[in-house]
Amino acid sequence: MPADVTVRPATPEDRPAVERLWLMFRHDLSEFRGVLPTAGGGFRADRVVHAFTAPGWAPYLLACGGHPAGFAFVRGLDGPVRVLNSFFVVRGARRRGVGVRAAREVLTRHPGPWEIAYQHDNPAAVRFWPRVAEDLAGDAWTREVRPVPGRPELPPDLWISLTVPPA
């Protein structure tokens, strides 16, 4: 596992880099959701806006060797359950332990109940998220199928629920 992985809260100065990483993330997900870019070549970025401005949200920037390598958006920090709203690691940093280490760091910063959604037709996510859940909660986690709110045309998501203990 690379020792040079860092996870830190993203600042307003980081937002341009996070917005570019968001485009890569949405491009990757377009394979599983059939979502095409807007006329301007981008994707809806309301989650980026929320991550940086909405109460109860927190954006994190992942770096590897000092280079931006991904992001995580957390919501629900002002409620009973935290939600890992979006999580992304660039392809050049995948399959080297970067994602597991980064996910663990983000989740352990906010001990307590968590929920994480992912698409069942994304084979990498199907392998990755149960591994993270087992790492943090042993066998004390659950997985369930839930419809995507307000999007009946999309296949349902898989949701993992777990409780992250205090450090």
Results as ranks from 00 to 15, higher is better:
residue 150 G to F: 00
residue 154 L to C: 07
residue 144 E to Q: 12
residue 73 F to C: 03
residue 25 F to L: 05
residue 158 L to A: 13
residue 36 L to D: 04
residue 7 V to R: 07
residue 167 A to Y: 06
residue 61 L to P: 00
residue 105 E to C: 07
residue 68 P to W: 03
residue 135 D to Y: 10
residue 155 P to N: 09
residue 141 W to Y: 15
residue 33 R to P: 00
residue 32 F to P: 00
residue 136 L to I: 13
residue 3 A to R: 15
residue 158 L to N: 10
residue 132 V to Y: 07
residue 132 V to T: 13
residue 19 E to D: 12
residue 3 A to F: 11
residue 108 T to S: 14
residue 145 V to C: 11
residue 28 D to R: 09
residue 50 H to G: 07
residue 129 W to F: 07
residue 79 G to C: 06
residue 13 E to H: 12
residue 122 N to V: 06
residue 83 V to H: 14
residue 102 A to T: 08
residue 113 P to G: 11
residue 135 D to Q: 15
residue 12 P to Y: 10
residue 87 F to A: 02
residue 93 A to G: 04
residue 113 P to K: 14
residue 94 R to I: 07
residue 33 R to K: 11
residue 102 A to N: 04
residue 136 L to T: 13
residue 104 R to M: 09
residue 59 P to E: 01
residue 126 V to G: 01
residue 5 V to C: 04
residue 108 T to Q: 15
residue 90 V to C: 05
residue 44 R to A: 12
residue 77 L to H: 10
residue 37 P to V: 06
residue 138 G to R: 14
residue 41 G to F: 04
residue 77 L to W: 06
residue 160 I to T: 12
residue 44 R to Q: 08
residue 71 F to M: 04
residue 133 A to P: 05
residue 159 W to P: 00
residue 85 N to W: 00
residue 165 P to T: 11
residue 115 E to A: 12
residue 163 T to M: 06
residue 8 R to D: 05
residue 116 I to M: 09
residue 58 A to Q: 12
residue 116 I to R: 08
residue 42 G to K: 08
residue 4 D to Q: 14
residue 19 E to V: 12
residue 155 P to C: 03
residue 149 P to S: 07
residue 95 R to W: 05
residue 91 R to V: 08
residue 148 V to H: 02
residue 162 L to M: 06
residue 1 M to V: 12
residue 22 W to M: 05
residue 88 F to R: 08
residue 25 F to G: 01
residue 147 P to T: 12
residue 20 R to I: 12
residue 43 F to A: 00
residue 61 L to S: 01
residue 142 T to E: 01
residue 109 R to G: 15
residue 18 V to L: 11
residue 49 V to C: 02
